[in-house]
Simulated scan of single mutants.
Amino acid sequence: MRDVTVDNITDVFTGYFGKDTDPRTREIMISLAQHLHDFTREVNLTHDEWRKGLSMLEHAGRITTPERNEFVLFSDVLGLSSLVDMMHSKPDATSSSVLGPFHVSNPPPLAIGGDMKRDFEGPVLLVEGQVRDTDGNAIPGAQIDIWQTAPNGMYSSQDPDQDIHSFHGLMTADDNGEFCFTTVRPVSYTVPSDGPVGELLEAAGRHPWRPSHLHYIATAPGFRSLVTEVFPDDDPYLDEDTVFGVRKDLVMTYHTRPATEFPDGLALSGSVIEPFLYVKFDLILSIDDDT
């Protein structure tokens, strides 16, 4: 320690682990330190800049709650969340995309054909799809956790005027792997910019907008869980997503259909008297290699 220098501190750190350290922990920590030290030397990081970085992390800790995770948001806007997603997506399955910081656990059951729109205003959207494996076979009974923003651009966990499970539902696909629900068309929205993530975006000259989307978590025994989101092709922020979540295979098209074509037997609040939007988007799951 008496001879530690700018040039050898990384090597000193590398030799600082106990003999019983988990090998994977050792690998990750050594690589992390190597990159952090190289970064610090490369940019000649000053004390003021170092303190500013720590201050942003402290701020993130203070405002993080079970409903808002600023550290997840940091990971999202830095592209880290999407990088991990892309590295571990299977090429023959639906691409994964960011979970985001506003997912609510334990959503209420949503029957096939159920309605998430309730009494909210906005264009009616009818969504259909099928959960399949990579060979095209239906996955009966797959679970689909569905959520989205309200028409005001806020998730339920952000908005005290919404029920915590507003625009959230857990659906079980039928014997043919099919699912169906009604909702209101999601809208583009901004990620929270009143915290340190907002400071980072402003410093970088970046806007906080995300294209509108539907969130899914699809699970089934023997298959890898899929966390993803799907985007309409006419959204103005499709190619400017501030969290880098858009993938080519996650872009869909909303089709306008007359009210007379709205199917019977769905649990939509009220009656459809205007043209509605329709989309069919299937979810492809890959086999869980661990099983």
Rank of each mutant, 00 (worst) to 15 (best):
V4N: 02
T5C: 04
V6D: 12
V6F: 01
D7T: 13
D7E: 14
N8I: 01
V12Q: 09
F13M: 09
T14Q: 12
G15E: 01
Y16E: 09
F17L: 09
F17H: 13
F17S: 05
K19A: 14
K19H: 11
K19L: 09
P23L: 05
R24I: 09
T25N: 12
E27A: 15
I28L: 13
I30M: 10
Q34E: 15
H35F: 14
D38T: 15
T40V: 08
R41Q: 15
E42T: 15
D48I: 09
D48C: 01
L54D: 05
G61N: 06
R62E: 15
T64L: 02
P66L: 00
P66Y: 04
N69Q: 08
V72D: 01
L73W: 01
F74R: 00
D76Q: 08
V77W: 03
V77P: 04
V77E: 00
L78P: 07
S81A: 14
S82M: 10
L83N: 06
L83S: 09
V84K: 06
H88V: 09
D92M: 08
S95T: 05
V98C: 13
V98S: 14
P101M: 03
N106E: 15
P107D: 06
P109N: 10
P109M: 07
L110K: 08
L110E: 04
A111H: 13
I112A: 10
G114M: 07
D115F: 07
D115L: 05
M116G: 02
D119W: 11
E121M: 04
E121G: 11
P123W: 00
P123Q: 09
V127F: 05
G129A: 03
G129Q: 03
N137T: 11
A138S: 14
Q143G: 04
I144V: 15
A150K: 06
P151C: 02
P151I: 08
G153R: 05
M154C: 03
S156I: 00
S157V: 11
Q158D: 02
Q158M: 14
P160L: 05
Q162D: 12
F167N: 03
L170T: 11
T172I: 08
A173C: 14
D175I: 01
N176E: 15
G177V: 05
F179W: 08
T183F: 00
V187E: 02
Y189N: 05
S193T: 12
G195S: 12
V197D: 00
L200D: 03
A203H: 10
H207F: 02
L214M: 12
L214F: 14
Y216D: 03
P221D: 04
P221A: 00
G222I: 00
G222E: 01
V227I: 14
P232D: 03
D233L: 01
D234P: 02
P236L: 07
L238P: 07
D241G: 06
D241T: 02
H255I: 12
T256A: 10
A259W: 08
E261M: 08
D264Q: 12
D264C: 03
L266A: 04
L268E: 05
S271L: 08
I273W: 02
I273V: 06
E274W: 00
Y278I: 02
Y278D: 12
F281K: 13
I287A: 12
D289T: 08
